[in-house]
Amino acid sequence: MNLQAIKAIYLFEMSRTMRTLGQSIVSPVLSTSLYFVVFGAAIGSRIDQVEGVSYGAFIVPGLIMLTVLTQAVSNASFGIYFPKFIGTVYELLSAPASFYEIVIGYVGAAATKALAIGLIILATANFFVDLSIVHPFWMLGFLVLTCFSFALFGFILGIWAQNFEQLQLVPLLVITPLVFLGGSFYSISMLPPAWQTVTLFNPVVYLVSGFRWSFFGMADVSVGFSLLAIGLFTVLCLAMIAWIFRTGYRLRS
């Protein structure tokens, strides 16, 4: 195991984040505040409560998930796409590091950044609503797991993408809709029955539901299902990464 290589990649990526610290933090905090104003204040004044939780508090887990998913995917995909784009990927390919060590370095850094932003949003949310977290450890566990699995997904995306458009296409066309339709801002039970069934095919539903359970102790689907879904997704990503490693897909000609 080349631990030095993992450390080098991780620190290099983190220093990139540090260089742009301002925009890394300001923009998610700002957009979260906007969501609170729009959803919490405007809509919340009409909905009042969802399953016994004030609407403002109810949307917090969904909001965190929205940002964390987007951040994990975009950080990890950019992290590996950029070296490909500017050609410095030759170093990674010629280093005495296995593909797994490279993945751990990049994914670790992207997940760390997403996690930090998730926690910052949680802190920001505290200014707007009263939050008491029922299962804080589960909450952290869900958050960390989500950061890692979606950073893995982002890494795959970054390897697949052959231009900047493709790099942005998936987050825009897949991630954002899935999150918005995944019960981030409403409870699944508020939908007509037919749509409830459709929604169950959306993997983000399980994430948000599990995450919300850790906050309020109530969920759209059972927590076991949530864990299973996120575990399955992680395994799928790992399998794909193993395949990329074996074939050198879009990395080695």
Binding site: A5, A8, I9, L11, R19, I86, G87, Y90, A97
Partner: peptide
Amino acid sequence: LVPQEVSLEPFESVINTVRFTRGLFG
């Protein structure tokens, strides 16, 4: 390896990128 194409991380400092390579090579 000194590659034919000059490919370097444009926003990094010289020392950081050299340090990075050393770490990458264990």
